[in-house]
Simulated assay, not measured.
Amino acid sequence: MTDPTQEPRFLQDPYPAYAALRCISPVRPVSGPGGRPGYLVTGYAEAREALGDARLSKDTAVFFAGRQSGRRLHPAVARTMLAADPPEHTRQRRLVTQAFTTGAVARLRPFIARVTEELLDQWPADGPFDFVAGLAVPLPVVVICELLGVPQADRPQVRRWSAELFAAGEPEVVDAASHAMADYMTALIADKRRDPGSALLDRLIAARDGDDRLSEAELVSLAVLLLVAGHETTTHALGNALLALLRNPAALDRLRSEPDAVPDALDELLRFDSAVSTATFRFTTEAVELGGTEIPAGVPVTIALGAANRDPARFPSPDRLDLDRNAAAHLAFGHGVHRCVGAPLAKAEAEIALRAVLTRFPGVRLGVPEDRLEWRHTRLVRGLVSLPVLA
């Protein structure tokens, strides 16, 4: 059969295609960019196993060594912590973990709530409000920029560069954005060295933890990663969650009447329509058997988190939004040593934002027909270009 993930309707709704592929095999060979052979994982058990298997490396420098790609991604984007294996990954991750603990995020909650209310104050009395542009984008941007210490005047441009980094099918745009973002962060780090503050980026600059000290290249790369990853996926998680509720009136009515139930509903909303559709790059360092399929050494393995979260073997009736489901084992944030370090912050932002919307605007509804909704043209993340809603 033809690969259904290559069909135009896949971006609108990838789950039928994922289900079709999973029925054939939860692990199957596919053709990657340029016809390069690879494997796609769509089953939950297989995805979880692959995410925790050290034989699946994320070290892109090793995989692409000697290969001519024609790309000019800045090393700060091409060689982030996400593209490293332990112990390098462990060393860098340890330096930022404290900023995203439950306690650290709890201290940020009043700031997140204040920003949310200020953004919702701009909701027009009549006419549609773009939930993506008006709340889902600016909220996590403001929060991560505040956490890192990015000046307020620079935040709109930083957001534009971040969006361009996900411009699927436009490699020149992506490459240019990578250089712009890295150059900006290099300059910001220099500014902070001259005038230190107390933000996370200042603490990374000052990090002196024995052999854990960051090199200059690692510092710039980590700053770029935190900035981009700290808001891009949260933006899409917010949009996907609200749309899922708007499409499921019973679930919407329940949370509208019980807004305190939003925290318990988050895992199911994250499972139902994952903001990260496929995990970032991995390849086999040796032959690996996964789901009864033998994967040879040296080939890319794409782990479809969105597909795994809709696997009926793990989540019965997976295409149904069920707020009573225990979905805590979802893979929307990944699994293993590379599980998203910012997951507690993302969940706090989603909880506060959704609760505020449902409390202040209990009559919220779609402002356009569903067939007019447009999705981002990328298979890495799944998110809406806009989400017009009415109060």
Results as ranks from 00 to 15, higher is better:
12 Q>H: 13
15 Y>I: 03
18 Y>G: 07
24 I>R: 14
25 S>N: 09
33 P>M: 08
43 G>E: 02
49 E>F: 00
50 A>I: 05
52 G>S: 04
55 R>G: 11
57 S>A: 02
59 D>W: 01
59 D>R: 04
61 A>C: 00
62 V>W: 00
65 A>H: 14
73 L>N: 13
75 P>A: 08
79 R>G: 10
81 M>I: 15
94 R>P: 05
97 T>K: 12
110 P>K: 01
111 F>P: 00
115 V>M: 09
120 L>F: 09
130 D>P: 12
132 V>S: 11
134 G>Y: 05
142 V>A: 14
143 V>I: 12
145 C>L: 03
146 E>N: 12
148 L>P: 07
152 Q>D: 14
152 Q>Y: 15
154 D>F: 08
158 V>I: 15
160 R>Y: 02
175 D>Q: 10
178 S>L: 06
178 S>I: 09
181 M>F: 10
184 Y>P: 07
199 A>R: 13
201 L>A: 13
201 L>E: 06
201 L>D: 07
202 D>H: 04
204 L>E: 06
209 D>W: 01
216 E>H: 11
221 S>M: 07
226 L>W: 05
226 L>I: 08
226 L>N: 04
229 A>S: 06
229 A>V: 07
254 R>S: 14
255 L>W: 08
263 P>T: 02
266 L>T: 09
267 D>H: 12
273 D>W: 11
274 S>I: 08
276 V>H: 05
278 T>W: 06
282 R>V: 04
287 A>W: 00
294 E>Q: 14
294 E>V: 10
297 A>D: 00
302 T>S: 08
306 G>N: 10
310 R>Q: 14
313 A>N: 11
314 R>A: 15
320 R>F: 09
324 D>Y: 09
325 R>H: 03
325 R>I: 04
328 A>W: 04
331 L>H: 04
337 V>A: 12
338 H>Q: 03
339 R>G: 03
342 G>P: 01
346 A>F: 07
347 K>Y: 00
356 A>D: 00
361 F>P: 09
365 R>W: 03
366 L>C: 12
368 V>G: 12
375 W>G: 11
375 W>L: 13
379 R>D: 14
384 L>P: 14
390 L>A: 13
